[in-house]
Write a protein that binds this DNA or RNA. Structure first.
Lengths: 314, 314
DNA sequence: CGCGACGCTGCTCATATGAGCAGAATCGCA
DNA sequence: TGCGATTCTGCTCATATGAGCAGCGTCGCG
């Protein structure tokens, strides 16, 4: 397109999109045939001069979702729009809402849903409507009894999801990470705990998030790990954690000893699930989102636009 | 529009604008008639959920231009888009380009064009094409021999506009502001100077900018005023200057004594011109732009989107 | 200078879309 | 509950738009 046509296409676009003139009227104004106007508008679009945004908290980016499915091999992807977002927490809320919407629309409705816990999962539980399902049983897939915070946020999440879905929750009564391997093995061999994990293994779907490998991690907040521990994990290549297990950028466990002291489904058990919905958003989680997708931990990803574009274009 | 319809309208908009589906196809996908889809899309637009931007350095905002004409009584207005602008200087460049475009398209072509000088006018002169007019005579309308900077930027501006327009420039060989009233009167009574000012009074069109009343003012840079002087002017209510004359928010001269020492057209003489094109953009000039428009100093305004919106919505 | 190839123009025709309207459904109020 | 008022729905019809195509001009190359 030469200079003159480029300028004309902009003038035409202004009249078409801002003034709602017909292509015929624009032709008269610019002394062009209406066909020429149509072609100029097509060129303007094709050259990317026209940007159309949908400004709404529930808006999604379907073309990006398609690319995630096609280029990253996901079964499904939900990408919320970042258009007009004020701050990071708004993006979290939008993503949580989208995850809740996805769960609600999910067919067939899972009879047993395995869930992790954390800030993201809690948000999702809050965004779910009462009656989002009828009779969903929720089971925790990793340990989550908090050590120093008000106990029960993990439990509250699972219970809320279950109650609003007209079912009941099965809690995993255990800390996330134990200090000694022996303790972990003892807890794991407990009848109740073993039963819960067994139930978790057989869930129809998993819903989980991932945490960043930095000092904002919920594991530090909960007292399972110290700043020091996280620094060491990062040194070993950790980009974040999934169900309490720290992984590197390829999705491999970075510290097998630590992993052995972590209660809940293993990553391979998680990966064996038929439907694995990961909900991951925010700048800090770009790297771990990539690792989760790369290693096939999730089959469905709910995320924000910026994270999605990071996964696609680096 | 209730919650359900709002959500549906967003889904429809995604399919329509991002996936290029027809309303009929969307109807099938969402189990709606195509008429319902059309109505949902109309509602989405009307509620402002759909934003269409034209991303191009030459893009203008026609609806805002119309409002400026209608609500601020301008004969014409040119508003450049701020969409996708990286920094302040890009906005200046866009505005200067728009002013150059406006001059080039101006009919009838003015035989004599009165110009002020400054950063903005210089930019315009650079953006004009060679041969933008044939035989335009340019005359300076205010004094502009710089005291401490390389002399001639003012002259270079007028000369460039004239040369590219196939005409010649008449310079006003005088400083902008004199220290003593007597000196000013002496210079003004000089045959040559008086002749130039007389020619300036009879120009077919004026092209000028305005400066902010702050320490970035070109009058400080040129040595006509000190930081102290400007502070005093601001105290007296100055919002900026036009052709070297400082005005308050109603367009009145704030310091008559200073004004009397300023060489060039008076504001009333400027206001008497048949076509008065002001080119004003940038955050710092919002107040002075308002004063210029409010007091009828310009009949045509070339500006940026943010400044225009400031003039319209405060 | 001649000739083929390419791109651009203005058209016809098919399709997509918006305006307007009559009947159906819903609402509000007694 | 009944009834008028209002909104909503699905339609017809007019219009706007995009696809495709033949003719023209222009360009590059021999």
């Amino acid at each position: 397109m030469d200079e003159t046509d480029e300028l004309l296409s902009i003038r035409a676009a202004e009249l078409y999109y801002e003034e709602n003139k017909t292509q015929d009227e624009i032709g008269q104004a610019l002394r062009l045939t209406r066909w020429k106007v149509g072609r100029l508008l097509a060129q303007a679009k094709q050259q990317g001069f026209i940007r159309i945004e949908i400004l709404h908290p529930r808006a999604r980016r379907l073309p990006i979702e398609r690319r995630l499915r096609e280029e990253r091999g996901l079964d499904d992807a939900i990408v919320v729009s970042s258009a007009g977002v004020s701050g990071a927490e708004e993006l979290q809320a939008r993503t949580a809402q989208a995850a809740a919407d996805y769960l609600t629309a999910l067919r067939p409705v899972p009879r047993t849903l395995g869930v992790s816990w954390g800030r993201t999962l809690f948000d999702i539980s809050q965004h779910l409507r009462n009656g989002w399902a009828t009779g969903v049983n929720v089971v925790q897939i990793n340990g989550g009894v908090s050590l120093n915070r008000r106990p029960g946020t993990a439990a509250a999440t699972a219970v809320a999801i279950a109650q609003k879905g007209g079912g009941s929750a099965t809690l995993l009564p255990s800390p996330a990470i134990l200090e000694h391997l022996a303790t972990k093995e003892a807890i794991e061999s407990d009848r109740v705990v073993a039963g819960v994990i067994e139930l978790a293994r057989s869930a129809d779907a998993y819903l989980f998030s991932a945490g960043p490998a930095d000092h904002t991690s919920v594991h530090i907040e909960s007292g399972y790990l110290g700043d020091r521990d996280v620094d060491l994990l990062v040194q070993k290549g950790a980009v974040g954690d999934v169900v309490g297990r720290y992984i590197d950028s390829d999705g491999n466990i970075v510290d097998p000893a630590l992993d052995a002291r972590t209660i809940g489904l293993t990553l391979d058990e998680l990966r064996a699930g038929p439907l694995r919905i990961a909900v991951i958003s925010g700048r800090a989680k770009h790297a771990v989102a990539d690792a989760v997708v790369r290693s096939g931990l999730c089959s469905v990803l709910v995320t924000d636009e910026a994270t999605a574009l990071h996964l696609l274009d680096g």
